[in-house]
Structure formats: structure tokens, C-alpha cells
């Protein structure tokens, strides 16, 4: 066990866990931030995607000891009132079926748009390809990413 200070969603939280504990489980079991989902545990599905700094990363593969001073943003911290352009677009397109993968999809999409505010269809597919949606909402996800880019541009 070791003590860590983690910058998360605009605040700093202290926690005493084994250094190899993946951030996914720190978030879910210790910080009670359960929006970040467990899907595979081996970096294959993207359900656990969070932002480390400005990058979308797989929190199931991110040991707490590797976080250091970098800031983590989870779905709960993406916006204050759930009004991030990507969240708005998701609501407008009504993307989800079961909804379980969608936090990960939203975190990947918002990291993409930050780097590339106006992605082409292929760039969207490329960036989103690591996020599995078992229910098959891919066409809606793509539509929503485009919509979010539009909302971004108009604000």
C-alpha cells in the first residue's frame, strides 16, 4: 500500500492503495465515480476511457502509480452541468441503447474534438475504433460527434 494524491475533476483526492491498482478501480471502488465503466480490463473495449491531461486513455491499464501530477477527467467531470458539446450532441441524437459503453465513447469523442475540432468521417472512425458498442450504436455515435463539432463551432 502507498498513499497517492490524485488530481481529479478539478480537485485533489488522497488515497491509500496498492501502487499497481488501475485507476479504473480507484475511481469506481474508492472515489465512488462509477461513470467510468469496466468492460474488458485489457485495453480492448474503451469502456473505461478517461482523460489523462488532454489524452483519452484506458483507465484499466493505468496504474495509480503512473498518474503523478497529471490531471484526470472522468465523465462526471467533463462539464459542470452535463452541457459539454459532446454531451449535448449525445442527448440530441439520442445515441444510446443500453448506454453502458457511452461514457467511454463520450470521453474518446471529446478528446478527439479537442485536438481536431472538425474531423472528417474517416478521422472520426479512426479515433472511435477502439471503443466497442455491443448494442451497435456506431452510426449514431458518428452522427453525434459531427453534431458536437457543429455545436462547438457555433459557440
Amino acid at each position: 500500500m502507498a498513499t497517492f494524491s490524485i488530481h481529479i475533476n478539478g480537485s485533489t483526492k488522497n488515497i491509500d492503495v496498492d501502487p499497481s491498482t488501475p485507476m479504473l478501480w480507484v475511481l469506481r471502488d474508492h472515489f465512488n465515480l462509477v461513470g467510468t465503466k469496466f468492460g474488458c480490463g485489457i485495453a480492448q473495449c474503451g469502456a473505461c476511457t478517461v482523460h489523462l491531461g488532454e489524452n483519452a486513455v484506458r483507465s484499466c491499464q493505468l496504474p495509480i502509480s503512473a498518474v503523478g501530477e497529471q490531471h484526470i477527467t472522468t465523465i462526471e467531470g467533463l462539464s459542470e452541468n452535463g452541457n459539454h458539446p459532446v454531451q449535448q450532441a449525445w442527448l440530441e441524437v439520442d445515441v444510446y441503447q443500453c448506454g453502458y459503453c457511452q461514457a467511454g465513447q463520450i470521453m474518446t469523442a471529446s478528446a478527439l474534438l479537442k485536438k481536431n475540432p472538425n474531423p472528417t468521417e474517416e478521422e472520426i472512425e479512426g479515433a472511435m475504433n477502439g471503443n466497442i458498442c455491443r448494442c451497435g450504436t456506431y452510426t449514431r455515435i458518428k452522427k453525434a460527434v459531427k453534431k458536437a463539432a457543429e455545436i462547438n463551432q457555433n459557440t
Binding site: G35, E76, W90, L91, Y96, G99, Y100, Q102
Partner: peptide, 15 residues
């Protein structure tokens, strides 16, 4: 629209 939409996009505990 899905009645759980807002909760889903903000990561509320639902599952």
C-alpha cells in the same frame, strides 16, 4: 428521447 439520457451522458450510477 430516452428518459435516462441525462444520467447516461453524465455518468450517474444506473447499472
Amino acid at each position: 428521447k430516452n428518459v435516462d439520457g441525462k444520467k447516461l451522458v453524465t455518468g450517474k450510477p444506473l447499472f
